[in-house]
Design a protein around this nucleic acid. Structure first.
Lengths: 180, 180
DNA sequence: ACCTGAACACCGTTCAAGT
DNA sequence: ACCTGAACACCGTTCAAGT
């Protein structure tokens, strides 16, 4: 028996579970998706999931990582675009994950692992945005500007506005960042 | 038997339940507070709660109304203050309700009544802020500015920053609203 | 009108037992 | 190593029965 082959199978099976969870969490929501329903969709017994994940929050973290990886892969096409377009693209790209964003915020107090994921996510996205704003605006205000932008994007994600409203808000947000 | 007396008692009992729920929802969180625990705190059987409320979300709405009424009662002391101070005061006033805010967002998709409450809340707070910004900034951008401000306040409420960071962000947010 | 004990259908998770 | 049936402790909610 080769020692590497089972490892490979394990990762395959795990990602099948993540794919099923991703679809159900996004379509029906995290709370509305029972472990039993997830197991049914993946064709296993409910308790089998616990061989691959610590608990339901651990499944959620795996789904978040998968969604984020896809979003980052698509992000490459955006370099050099105006910042307001990048913001709007981000909002529309993550629009389908609306329910996931609110679920993360609601479960931060109940799952230490999810809390850590959320902190890391904010740290990396805020670093990305700070890099874009550097040498454009006053360094003394950059941290506050980054937070305002991130909170606004989160608000746009969680409040389901019309595309036109989203665009106007992104434009207005970027209006105070002079290009040079 | 007087027909009005029972009415009075009913409202009293109901507000006792709301008081208990308010304390538990804020201290332990909505999900972590079971109907059994709430009933125990109020000294009734679990199913008695359903004589006063439709369901658990209906209890949440009553708690939200109570919190909001108290906040509005205290708001009077703020009239005439600079807008950035009003924003910071709002954030700190509602800081204790951090978990409630995320719970509302997470449960919007599951409770039609809560969704309606959330829509009404946004409508009234945004109208309030719009009134403050009128004749100060370009009418074409006022709706976007209001949304940015509301989303930033929500972000401040749900992300537990240090008071110093909160103040800087409120100042930076108000920096684009010229006084006249 | 108000309150309750008991039950219902579910939930996430654990465990002993299999292969 | 991987998977399962059965059980566990809990959940929000309902219902028949009391006063």
């Amino acid at each position: 028996m080769p020692p590497t082959k089972p490892r490979q199978d394990r990762e395959e099976k795990r990602s099948e579970l993540v794919d099923a969870a991703r679809r159900l969490f996004i379509e029906d929501g995290y709370d509305a998706t029972s472990m039993a329903a997830l197991a049914r969709a993946a064709g296993v017994a409910a308790n089998t999931i616990y061989w691959y994940f610590d608990d339901k929050d651990d499944v959620l973290i795996a789904v978040l990582d998968a969604v984020l990886a896809d979003a980052l892969a698509d992000y490459g096409s955006l370099v050099g675009q105006p910042l307001q377009d990048q913001l709007l693209w981000t909002v529309q790209q993550l629009q389908q994950t609306r329910r996931l964003v609110t679920t993360v915020h609601a479960r931060i107090g109940r799952s230490e692992a999810l809390n850590a994921w959320h902190d890391a996510f904010h740290a990396s996205t805020e670093a990305l945005l700070r890099g874009q704003l550097e040498q454009r605006i006053d360094p003394a205000t950059i941290d506050a500007e980054v937070k305002i932008a991130v909170f606004t994007v989160e608000g746009l994600l969680t409040h389901e506005l019309e595309p036109h409203e989203q665009r106007v808000i992104c434009e207005q947000l970027a209006a105070r960042w002079p290009t040079r």
